[in-house]
Design a protein around this nucleic acid. Structure first.
Lengths: 250, 250
DNA sequence: CGCGCCGTTGATCCCGGTCAAGTTGCGTGG
DNA sequence: CCACGCAACTTGACCGGGATCAACGGCGCG
């Protein structure tokens, strides 16, 4: 079951500001941009490239990652449908990281002027986009906390709970079970651990009845316990409808 | 030796866009905002507070940090003079982290409308500020790479080289020696290690003739070797004058 | 002059890394 | 329909970087 991207995106942005019918129309117009498709494991854009377009994910999962010269890889961000991969980075001359597809990804390649016009014509959307970027930055800070201070079980637990909330917020995980296409190696590169230890830790969580995970699905069996283990603090996702005040009627 | 903040800030922003005399005048006017002072170890703002002003650091070092319920602390960002602590976060309802002073910090408390007017009146400054935020985000990504994939020596080496470049870019470290007020405990909270291991690792780097560090100064003795050890890749700081094109004359 | 923070040192432990082999499952082609 | 191949997952044995626990020394400050 797929959903149109302006739907997922609109749904996300509405967490910050209630959008008018006109706003939603403007978002739907983003679908006029070319739709591109990349296979799993392929790059959307690689480090050093000059970013020319803004990528808006339509379906599939992708990740932002960086390499060290010794070959080690760190995933520094995950994208689900409705996420902008690089809303602003076209400002920078060269990209300092790469973006790769995890599952098959389809995305809209928006020319920067399209964003600039959208922000100009629909200031409430512009503000919501800024808010969205701030949430992304907040997630990055939480990931720093995770890598610096959480142990193996806490790292995985926190990632699972976060992604559950993020996927649910776009309406794709109502029942606690959702598509989760990361391999254990991807998980290892995300949590800064080895694949072997990632595997063993996942098995622990499984045996304790906290999660139910197969090759491409993740089930959260005991959200409360998992959140407690992770020391999950929902605040950083800013899930509460912060922008009740910023109403379309105003 | 202190320097006026608009000087440090202007210098930084000019890495992206050449500013006109009018632009510089507008930056200088930021100094009309109230100047506040906080003692070392005190907070500028704490998690959960409602951010009401934009803080522009004038002198001293500060850090952004997060706590886990078990008491562990992670520093997720460092601020030197001329840095905005939270250019945009007043958009968010509640702060998801705290900002604390490391040395004595003086900062301008800018009302949000002052920034909004500045960005509106001087679009080139607005664009330079956006660029500056993107560089901050890039630094966060590199820190994720550090915490996930670098070992103890590499972590410290990378931090030292990064801060050297950042301090030099505001004109405070011409000779490779500069003020560095972090305690070893602060360093431990930044690198995700224990104070004990931080201490031992610093001693290694000292004995190898890479650094020269006393209670509040850091000297980079062998920048090339330290950069190599850290696998430092200057790209993420976007130090090259990226915005030659965005000239004030245009 | 004494208290507290910071840096230093030593002894010991353990979480997670490393190395090395399987095993399972799925897509591909004969 | 089966054989093959590859990628992902699993398991076991061992190792080691960094954590932990516990003192102690130095220096800045009241």
């Amino acid at each position: 079951m797929t959903m149109t991207i302006d739907h997922a995106l609109g749904r996300k942005l509405e967490r910050f500001a209630r959008l008018s019918e006109e706003d939603h129309r403007a978002l739907r117009r983003l679908r006029e941009a070319p739709l591109r498709e990349v296979e799993p494991r392929a790059d959307l854009i690689a480090e050093g490239d000059e970013p020319a377009v803004v990528r808006l994910s339509e379906s599939g999962w992708a990740c932002r990652y960086k390499h060290l010269p010794n070959g080690r890889r760190q995933i520094v961000g995950l994208f689900v449908p409705g996420d902008f991969c690089d809303l602003n980075v076209y400002i920078l001359r060269h990209l300092d990281h790469s973006i790769g597809a995890i599952s098959k990804v389809r995305y809209y390649a928006l020319p920067p002027h399209m964003i600039e016009e959208l922000v100009h014509d629909r200031p409430r959307i512009g503000k919501a986009l800024l808010w969205n970027e701030l949430v992304q930055a907040s997630i990055q800070r939480e990931w720093l906390l995770t890598l610096g201070q959480r142990n193996a079980r806490e790292r995985l637990a926190n990632l699972f709970v976060e992604m559950f909330h993020r996927v649910r917020s776009i309406g794709l995980a109502g029942d606690g079970k959702f598509e989760f296409p990361l391999t254990q190696t991807d998980l290892a590169d995300t949590t800064g651990m080895t694949p072997v230890h990632t595997n063993r830790t996942i098995q622990e969580l499984r045996q304790e009845g906290l999660i139910d995970m197969d090759r491409r699905h993740l089930g959260i069996c005991d959200l409360a316990a998992l959140s407690r283990l992770a020391m999950f603090n929902a605040g950083y996702l800013h899930l509460d409808r912060e922008g009740e005040t910023l109403d379309a009627a105003n």
